[in-house]
Simulated assay, not measured.
Amino acid sequence: MFDFNNKEKKWNIIFMAFCVILVVLLAGMLIWSKKTEAAESKRLQAIAAGKKEDTGNKAEDGQKKTESTEAENTETEEASKENPEGIVCWGDDLINGEPSATYSYKVILQQLLQEKGYSLPVQDKTLQGASTLSMMTMAGVPADQVQQYITKHQEAAAGAELAITETGIRDLTPEQTNRTDLQCIPVICMGYYGGWNHDPAELAEQQQKILETFPDKEKFIIIGTMPMDGSVDAATLDAALKAKWGEHYISAAEVTTSPSSTYEAQAEIAQAVLDKLEELKYIQREG
């Protein structure tokens, strides 16, 4: 006879075993899932930390590059300051005619620079026999400012006849008014032919007008020479211009005993300019 009770017991045992296996499998899957989740979390955290570090590194690198660029720009700017494009002579050409090409202080200055190893060109922005009014005009000083000086001279004359240099402005060519010298160190020597109403204070104002046309207004040299007509003596001129320009000033009367228009004086003025350029550390030899 078939025993149904034994059969039922077997199925119960199998069912219970299956349940136990199922529970073990579920528990294992749960544990594996938690471990996987934990591992993924750690991986994501590591990636996030890596990105943060990378971002920090990039920011640091960017800052270093910016600092490096700024340093390079500063070095370039400092090098530009230490090594100007050249020297430019503004004002009077004291030796008229053909000898000027050989004996003028600006020509001798170029020779002296080369002899001492300076590779700096000397530009010529001088005018022969012209007034300071013409020089200001050539530099680009506004016409209304130049006219104010002319009006002042006429009023001071009170109807008396004035020299042409006190009221006249020379016709200038485009080449003369073209400014290729703005990055050069200006050496301003003006006043020999007049245009400043025999007033050293006014001459200093006019020199300042030309200086203001340069981007760098800190580096310059002013040369003072007695006017050709002798209307102002060297002591009076030097006192006013020294008070205005200080260490930037060179007195022609102090560096030479010859008249400014002589070859000897021009050579001595050129040497004084070179000495002043070195004294003020405006130039330095390469290498």
Rank of each mutant, 00 (worst) to 15 (best):
K7T: 12
K7V: 07
K7N: 10
K9E: 06
K9A: 13
I13V: 12
L22K: 05
G28W: 10
G28D: 13
G28Q: 09
E37D: 14
E37M: 14
A39Y: 11
E40C: 12
I47D: 12
E53S: 07
D54G: 10
T55K: 07
Q63L: 10
E70A: 06
E78W: 08
E78H: 07
N83S: 13
G91A: 04
D93G: 08
L94M: 12
P99C: 05
Y103P: 00
Y105Q: 01
V107K: 04
V107S: 03
I108M: 04
L109Q: 01
Q110R: 01
Q111S: 15
L113P: 05
K116Y: 02
K116T: 08
K116C: 09
G117T: 05
S119Y: 14
V122I: 03
Q123T: 01
K125P: 05
T132S: 14
T137L: 00
D144A: 08
D144L: 03
Y149H: 01
Y149K: 00
T151D: 13
H153K: 06
E155W: 00
G159Q: 02
A160D: 09
E161F: 08
L162K: 01
R170I: 00
D171Y: 02
T177P: 00
N178D: 09
T180F: 00
D181K: 00
L182E: 09
I185V: 10
P186R: 08
I188A: 03
Y192I: 09
G194N: 07
H198D: 13
D199I: 02
A201S: 15
E202F: 08
Q206I: 00
Q206M: 14
L211K: 03
T213Y: 00
F214W: 06
D229W: 03
G230M: 12
T236A: 15
D238T: 05
Y249T: 13
E254L: 09
S258F: 12
S261D: 15
Q271C: 02
L277Y: 01
E286F: 06
E286N: 12
